[in-house]
């Protein structure tokens, strides 16, 4: 009995309730999903084992390929635009002494709004009747009168823009936190050496916040895989699958076409993709990367 009152066990007592909930909410459904991907289950009724048929079908599915490509584009877009803007703004904010809190709050504010609200704001802004579309049409700028959410060529980027607008403030805050940890003496030394603002950023700030930066890159790559809500609300993956992403496609297969087996196969694919990313970051850490 003594073993249970051991100090090392105390942490386990605290972790166990959460682990237990995770087992039921995530663990068992995930395992069930792994099993269902080998069946033709339609969400109701009998379950038939069909081997790897769903996976064979996956490789022939042109819309899944489109969704995967869109996810890759999405990831690249998020790794560049919000990260670039957030880094710049966070760095600039470190130089602001008065009113910095206002900017931090202003940048972070969209992150606090529910995705449905963010989506409705932008949907109405771009609406062809109520939004800017109507205004541009009245002044004769017809090329701007059409909602970018409804054009095949722009829908994915428009959705990514809205999600990025909501997300980048979060990045600003975590980068800013990292930047405040940097020893001020380094900047003072650089000033004495006559370094420019950019040089200080490139050679002091960026290397010093590397753990935070790499962490942000990792969460962006992982969060880009199950991206769903903004696509679902703004475009539903359309028009013509132009903004379709894997999670939305998986949802459509399960809840519109009732093809739960196939949907589980897509989920399994996503699971292994995320596992590979996590494993890669684990390898980097083992290789001595400070992440």
């Amino acid at each position: 009995m003594k073993i249970f009152s051991n100090k090392n066990f105390v942490a386990w007592y605290f972790v166990l309730p959460v682990a237990f909930i995770h087992l039921f909410v995530i663990g068992i459904p995930s395992l069930a999903s792994l099993a269902l991907c080998l069946t033709d289950w339609r969400g109701l009724g009998e379950i038939n084992y069909i081997g790897f048929e769903n996976f064979i079908e996956l490789f022939d599915d042109r819309y899944l390929k489109k969704a995967i490509i869109n996810n890759v584009i999405w990831t690249i877009a998020f790794l560049t635009v919000p990260v670039g803007i957030a880094l710049t703004c966070a760095y600039l904010l470190t130089g602001i002494k008065r009113g910095q809190m206002f900017f931090r709050l202003a940048f972070f504010f969209p992150y606090m709004l529910a995705s449905v609200i963010n989506c409705q704001i932008w949907k109405y802004l771009f609406h062809p009747i109520h939004g800017l579309g109507g205004f541009f049409e009245r002044i004769g700028w017809d090329f701007l009168a059409v909602s970018p959410f409804t054009m095949k060529s722009t829908s994915l980027f428009a959705v990514a823009f809205v999600d990025g607008w909501h997300f980048w403030g979060f990045l600003v805050v975590i980068y800013l936190t990292g930047m405040y940890q940097v020893d001020n003496h380094l900047y003072e030394a650089a000033d004495i050496e006559g370094a420019t603002k950019f040089q200080k950023f490139r050679y002091i700030t960026l290397p010093m916040i590397r753990p935070v930066f790499v962490f942000s890159i990792m969460i962006i790559i992982i969060w880009s895989v199950p991206v769903f809500d903004y696509v679902y609300i703004l475009t539903g993956g359309g028009p013509a699958y132009s903004s379709e992403v894997i999670a939305n496609y998986m949802y459509s297969q399960a809840f519109e076409r009732f093809d739960v087996g196939y949907s589980s196969a897509i989920g399994t694919l996503m699971f292994f993709y995320v596992m590979i990313i996590v494993a890669l970051f684990g390898l980097f850490r083992k290789a001595g990367w400070d992440i």
Partner: peptide, 17 residues
């Protein structure tokens, strides 16, 4: 008016239109 507007307009809008 166009495919894009058709995609952008919902129940309340088309009744109003």
């Amino acid at each position: 008016g166009s495919l894009e507007n058709y995609y952008a307009i919902g129940w309340d809008d088309f009744h109003a239109q």
